[in-house]
């Protein structure tokens, strides 16, 4: 909850749409990275990162859903009654998730099977909901799209990093292909593609992210 508050405070509209665009992009993708800093939406981040390919598809899914729902929520922000905004947001998000799910089922059946229930679980992904609630409700459509892209990218990049290392260390391959020297020399460590590896990998990524970014943002509050 505190995270949501701070996200709200940092993205108060100050200037024009154009000048705000870049700040919003940077804010979402780096300074307020949804995964590493706000620790939102980690369920899917952990579950699908056992292979790089899955991570990329999931990242794309989140960018799509986040942009779409931000746009619609922002367009409807003036005529959504405050009291039912939550259920309206959930309905909008669910619509986009269904679109993506049907798309995967139609064109990438294998991928859809591998991701299993996790595509559906984007609905309860707090990032999408959080952005709709904290940003799109107060900002014009264009800016909301930028915010959606920024947060989606922030999420997708971290996902790709974790997916890359988990697949590399867990199977010794990347995208299902062997790497010439590395794969022969390296003994795959199964634990990395199993559950514990996911937790540990994400923990280390968050730790490194904090180390690069400097002292924890909590101190500023």
């Amino acid at each position: 909850m505190a995270d949501k508050q701070s996200a709200c405070a940092t993205c108060q509209p100050k200037g024009l749409c154009g000048g705000k665009g870049l700040t919003t992009l940077k804010e979402g993708a780096w300074a307020n990275n949804p995964l590493a800093i706000q620790v939102l939406g980690i369920c899917s981040a952990l579950a699908v990162t056992n292979r790089l390919e899955n991570s990329l598809v999931m990242g794309a899914a989140l960018i799509f859903v986040c942009v779409g729902s931000n746009l619609i929520v922002s367009l409807l922000r003036k005529c959504t009654p405050y009291r039912i905004r939550m259920i309206a947001e959930v309905a909008i998000i669910a619509t986009f998730v269904i679109l993506f799910d049907q798309f995967l089922k139609a064109f990438y059946w294998d991928m859809s099977k591998q991701l299993g229930p996790y595509v559906g679980l984007i609905i309860t992904n707090c990032i999408v909901m959080g952005r709709a609630e904290a940003f799109a409700l107060q900002n014009p459509p264009i800016l909301s799209i930028v915010d959606g892209i920024a947060n989606g990218i922030g999420y997708a990049v971290i996902l790709a990093i974790i997916g890359f290392f988990r697949e590399l260390l867990g199977t010794g391959e990347i995208m299902g292909r062997t790497i010439p020297v590395f794969s022969e020399w390296y003994t795959p460590n199964q634990i990395m593609i199993l559950a514990p590896g996911a937790f540990i990998a994400l923990g280390i990524v968050i730790g490194i992210f904090n180390a690069i970014k400097g002292p924890a943002p909590e101190e500023k509050k």
Partner: peptide, 23 residues
């Protein structure tokens, strides 16, 4: 705990160990 790992990061690592135990 190392400073940059405080809070969530170390909780994740601990969860990893917990998951390993459950294995």
């Amino acid at each position: 705990v190392p400073k940059c790992f405080e809070g969530v990061a170390i909780a994740m690592v601990v969860t990893g160990v917990l998951a390993m135990t459950f294995m």
